[in-house]
Amino acid sequence: MSECAKYKDRMIEAHYGELEPGDREELDRHVASCPECAAELAALRSTLGLMDGRERTDPGAEFWDGYWDRLSRRMLWESIDEGRKPSLVRRFIGSLAALPRWSYQAAGAAALLLIGIFIGGRLIAPAGGPVRETAASVAAGGAGVQAAAVVQAGNFVERSKVLLLGLVNSGPAGADAYGLDLDGKKAMSRNLAAEAPALRRALAGRDQKRLRGLVAELEVIMMQIANLGSGQDVEGVELVKQGVDARGIFLKIDLDRMGRDARPAVTVPGTPGTAKISKT
């Protein structure tokens, strides 16, 4: 490598002030005595000076102020749980719109029949066989932890429901816009949101997919509540309400509760009371 090549290689670093002081002095001495390198350095500075003229377009204060709301809304709509694909569900629901009315009635009747058979089967099933199978799987390892996670998740869901009911049943009438202890609710939401990741991880089984999804949705909502603005934050509360409504959260909570109630109870070693785990 020629003398000049060595110095040309150092010019960019020198421009950005990243050359060691000794190397910088050496480069300066060379450039002072070499017209070709001096021209090269001038050209480099000219190009980079031109690039300084490129400004990143600032999208503006309104964009930045609404950034969090848009992000949290997207988080609500997107599945946190990797297993679920809400866009496919939406597409499926969209395709139903094209069907004739009689098909809804027939599908409704069939669904009611299936639900009846399912619930009946669960409630009337003899305590022996399937539960023994479940007990065997508990003994096989891991299921006890799962069952404990289900109990904890049920508790989490119920506490979230109480909190959400307080929020959605409040209205913006009166001087105290929501007449609710928003700070207290934010603190509760923070705790719930912090509990959720461990619960999601513990609900690892395939048969816990729905409950895991519900916990994930509630987690995002709790995070949204925990991050509401100071004071009443009417707009933020409305956003949460819309999210809860749009996602049918209360219906999902009730379905989850029904599902858990319908399952046979199994005692979980080391946990107070009983846990209900599904038949495998």
Partner: peptide, 25 residues
């Protein structure tokens, strides 16, 4: 990183009509 930066600057110089920055070799 140095290599990518060097190449980027060289291409920018070329595109913006300035002499390219090429090593001696």
């Amino acid at each position: 990183v140095k290599s990518y930066l060097f190449r980027a600057v060289r291409k920018l110089q070329k595109e913006l009509g300035r002499p390219a920055l090429i090593s001696g070799n």
